[in-house]
Design a protein around this nucleic acid. Structure first.
Lengths: 237, 237
DNA sequence: CGGTTGTTTCGGCCGGGGCCGAAGTGAAAC
DNA sequence: GTTTCACTTCGGCCCCGGCCGAAACAACCG
């Protein structure tokens, strides 16, 4: 089909994988970092299981998803943080699909997501952005030369008992554009470590679909103590 | 067409813009940071001008490209660094299209690109990666907490008379995955400033299509003096 | 004012690919 | 064993969208 007398990477085949509403929906759902089964995804996207199978094949073959079979289940997850970043960059440029949710429950779900949610493996939403802002204000993060962790920030993490895996290729601090807030929040290895720490210590807890999260009373207390976040912001209105 | 009972950003429409070989080719060509006319792009991609027009409309409407009319010419360029980053992330995941160039001239062009080229507004290729490595080794850049500029690095830039625009949302230091080397090189505001300084002072000079660049004798001397890069590496074999 | 050239619009062709339902496979449950 | 349930394969439908060429339009040049 291609005239292709131009060398270079073949963007189109990768982009084509995300150029379909159903496949894009799969990836968006998988941004929660969990592994989903084929049927779950099919139901989520509203297509027949057979259709989902074909899409998943394409995504796995294209190295966007990794699969794992367990018995009669086929679990898929994003192939890695680099895929999450790709999906995020696309999402940041994309227009909102349904600005006015039809049902009341959809509106509520949407509001919960906008307040606090996980974005692959770190925190996003109003709360995620507020945490990032507070860390910058307290000089734990540094914006001067791109987003970076200050030595004060390293100490702060240590005091909280958070250890950040080191020596990997993954940048420890990365800025990720928030869909709902349209402002950057903390991602990368530090963002992931902070998020899993918040889960482990019960500062936050999964809500409903599990992608939305809620800040617990303990969490409110601790976020206030360590970052000076206000109760008002943290309690979901 | 869409069942779309799921809210959220509409990835697919953005991805669809890059999911076509011709449109992807346009964006890849525009990665050189220059503005191209519609006919130039059409010829580059090997399609009829009418076809190019339609593609360009789509890309402009999708906010991937910005256009500027001058007389009977229509110039287009990437809409901004964020688009360049998106294209780069896709390119980093994409397989190589033509691993074995047919003609001798194509092979030569490819080799020139692999050696040194611009990537939107900063330097890439063997030389770009070598510069980044040298800056890390000399502690001008710091990998410990993601890629960051050290204070030594800031001084170094100042001594060279390079001023980096500050106060913008753009990260001053960003890591960009090199297609040919498959290793990260320096991007972001600092990468751009360093690149334009190298052009302005005649360290490097455009070659052929203008996306490939060559290191001048002066450049070899200066890169050696300021970064300890070897003559061997800089002189294209 | 015509002639040239860059760009746009339109009609028509045609292939790719997303969708489903029916039927098949294989693991788990009974 | 049989039943159930998750997943897969296949055939067929249909429409989206990329392509071209012909012709219109617009800017620049004599």
């Amino acid at each position: 089909m291609q005239r292709a007398h131009v060398a270079g990477p073949d963007l189109a085949t990768v982009a084509k994988l995300l150029a379909d509403g159903t496949r894009a929906g799969f990836c968006l759902a998988l941004l929660d970092g969990r592994a989903w089964t084929a049927t779950e995804l099919a139901r989520h996207a509203g297509v027949a299981p057979s259709t989902a199978t074909e899409h998943l094949h394409a995504l796995v073959r294209g190295n966007l998803l990794a699969e794992e079979r367990q018995g009669r289940h086929r679990y898929v997850r994003l192939a890695g943080p680099h895929v999450a970043e790709l999906v995020e960059s696309l999402a940041a440029m994309a227009p909102e699909r349904s600005p006015t949710p039809r049902s009341l429950s959809a509106a509520g779900r949407r509001q919960a997501l906008a307040h606090a949610r996980t974005c692959y493996d770190h925190l996003a939403g109003t709360v995620g952005v507020a945490i990032t802002d507070a860390m910058i204000e307290r000089r734990l993060l540094d914006l001067e030369h791109g987003l970076g962790l200050t030595s004060a920030g390293a100490t702060w993490l240590e005091d909280l008992g958070i250890t950040v895996p080191t020596g990997t290729r993954r940048p420890s601090v990365r800025s990720c554009l928030d869909w709902t807030e349209r402002r950057p929040h903390l991602a990368g290895a530090v963002g992931a470590a902070l998020c899993s720490h918040a889960f482990d210590t019960g500062w936050i807890t999964p809500v409903g679909s599990r992608r939305a999260v809620a800040v617990t009373p303990l969490g409110r207390q601790e976020f206030r103590r360590h970052l000076g976040l206000s109760e008002l912001l943290l309690s979901r209105k």
